[in-house]
Nucleic acid binder design. Sequence first.
DNA 1: CTTCTCTAGGTACAGCGTACGTAGAAGCGC
DNA 2: GCGCTTCTACGTACGCTGTACCTAGAGAAG
Lengths: 258, 258
Amino acid sequence: MPSSKSEPSDPSEPPEPSEPSEKPDKPVPPEAPELIWLRPERTGRGPRPAHSRDSIAAAAISIADAEGLEAASMRRVAAALGAGTMSLYNYVPKKEHLLDLMLDAASGEYRLPPEPSGDVRADLTALAHQQLAIFRRHPWLPALVVARPGIGPNALRYTDHFLAATAPTGLDGGARMEAMALFNGFICQFAQYEQTAAAGAKWQAELAGYLGQAAAGGEYPHLAQAFATAGPPADPDTAFDRTLNRVISAILAPTSED
Amino acid sequence: MPSSKSEPSDPSEPPEPSEPSEKPDKPVPPEAPELIWLRPERTGRGPRPAHSRDSIAAAAISIADAEGLEAASMRRVAAALGAGTMSLYNYVPKKEHLLDLMLDAASGEYRLPPEPSGDVRADLTALAHQQLAIFRRHPWLPALVVARPGIGPNALRYTDHFLAATAPTGLDGGARMEAMALFNGFICQFAQYEQTAAAGAKWQAELAGYLGQAAAGGEYPHLAQAFATAGPPADPDTAFDRTLNRVISAILAPTSED
DNA sequence: CTTCTCTAGGTACAGCGTACGTAGAAGCGC
DNA sequence: GCGCTTCTACGTACGCTGTACCTAGAGAAG
């Protein structure tokens, strides 16, 4: 989100008190890191927290799984934990960070082998299947994955595994990161398409009707022809594997300058 | 959005009054279509509407461009049009539909040739560059594209063009639609990555610090190595073209069974 | 003209994220 | 031990959101 919310151009951070003992009347929380993974979960001073990041993420995830991402509000999550709403803000300074926690907790569901097999295509195929399964389990996840970078211990473990698995390609680090983005983008897109497709027969029927009428209208001739040419709807897993193979081939292709 | 908001399982549509003159005390709006493109913009009875879908979309887009997608609230858009908040609901029965309007209006920015050139790679490259330019102009767009199917006259024109441009591949309609999803998914992912990268030096610095410390920790060895192996950050357009070439190759590859 | 349908818009409500302030518990320096 | 500091817990309140519902009134159809 680059321009979103128009953050007041960073209020020119307070001039960094070089001598913290200089004036004790400014308690100075000078730079609480924006990234939640940079804040320690526990500082060791006051009473021990009643909840952990894991349990918070788990509560939020179970709400989102059951009722959708927008049901996982601060109030709902806090209530699920048996805490007051504002207590949650001791753990999660902003809602955004709750999403980060959820994202990373879900990324913890991967079962990654300690070392890749050396067969890039096989490793990536297995990884993609796991990812799709996780996305199907948590329909709100793809939207988060495309929206946020996804840092955090578990996401880094995934990244590390992907980099290891693609090491035999001989691509440099940057190219393999780009390949990962492509790989992820495809899987997210597929999972989200699958969701809207499953969203309801009524909507689906309306869509078909609209497309049919649009196609029949004479505009969109190639769309009409594609509908005519298309075979049976094809089972989702088959379609997934078909395009996945293309994606992996694209990653494996030497430089594809053609 | 499959489970989100738990729509009350479709209230089993009222039994379709076969004789509309039978009982005039039920004015019966029996099935207002959910899809906004299925509703006529103008029915021709009462006073003429003061606004058009185009002007509404334009107002919303200019707000979203300037202040982010979440600034384009019903109130803000209505105010920008000089209308009362609730008047907007005569044009756009739900906020969701406003997003559809914005999405399609933005899709109207493509300048598509009447016929593709026949050179698939060239046509797709040109299309991708246009798409990236549009995404850069409207930072909120990629999120909408991945989230919603994107039907609507202009989006269909895009789809039709893509299908026409990929006709020489010999792929059937379904496969070309999947190819389009892959193509779109990559471009959206790239545009969104680019945005978070541009989001601010502070955040970027924190991220680098965190990644560095994570890499140095000894976990994530491949990540650390990738950072070491990676060359200079590489200009975004170059990176885009590099992966775009891979994507196009994946689409062009005969069946990529390997 | 009457009638019906459409538009415009105000009011109101539930729910959201969260700023702020208070009360009390737990660790540290003396 | 004491007190200081820092943490946690949580209630209240504000401004914002989407939108259900209602009242007027404009204009086409009969």
